[in-house]
Amino acid sequence: MISLLSTLLNGLSLGSVYAIIALGYTMVYGIAKMLNFAHGDVIMVGAYISFVAIFYWGLPPILGFLLAMVVCTVLGIVIESLAYKPLRQATSLAVLITAIGVSYLLQNSAQLIWGANPKAFPAMFSLPDASLFGGSVTISNNTISLLNDQLKISGNMILTILACVAIMVVLTLFINKTKMGKAMRCVSEDKGAAELMGVNVNLTISLTFAIGSALAAVAGVLLCASYPSLQPTTGAMPGIKAFTAAVFGGIGSIPGAMIGGILLGIIEKLGQTYVSDQLGDAFAFAVLIIVLLVKPTGLMGKKVHEKV
């Protein structure tokens, strides 16, 4: 029972990271109708920036975190305007290959700048050691131990889940309550009509990339806080998983990405613990396939009627 609880918490924390990355994928897909394969590598850039800021420049973690967000936001806008904007009218396959080119470019730039060796990511913050409620809850080594040391929750896990919840609330409010959010919904519905109604489509698409990339930076820092090994290919696999999560939840749908990400994380951890520690990825992908076969547009995807 306690082992199940701990697995679920682990899955929730991993799933939160997937959900944050998947938001970037799904927003870009919803608005620009493209699979941004370079998104996973923006995560890696974010993690490296905060690593350099905290480890080499000695900035406080929160400043490193903000710096990573700013750099990734700028990077997202630059990538969009240089590589993707000229291809608005091109076939989706051409855009996909360009995105793959950008992904290679980011990975190899990171390798040239920071080298291929994995770097140990520093701890972002630490909880004070304490013993509460007469010793039933102890905090040591940045880990909270509950129920006679049987259930251990790391500080990073709590931070990740809290960050995910905060991002979900803020993003949902932004999309539904602000003028820019309304513009984003319009563009994703019908680009041409939105343009006729006076929505600045180019600005909206740039903004989407900016938000997605900033979220990627957050995800990168959270991911490396939990799995502290940083190398140029760090972002690739979580990127693919998050992409899967976005499709799982119905690509283009923001609540879908959140639910898809969290479910995927939990399924992966459950599979790893109870089925096979080698086949965790296979388990997550198999569930994705089954979901898509039953519901071909994902959990919360809109059904598009085909016009003849």
Partner: peptide
């Protein structure tokens, strides 16, 4: 895109 992602998933399952 759904077909692409399912084939990617199958490829990863085979690898796993």
């Amino acid at each position: 895109d759904y077909l692409a992602i399912v084939l990617l998933a199958f490829g990863e399952i085979i690898r796993n």
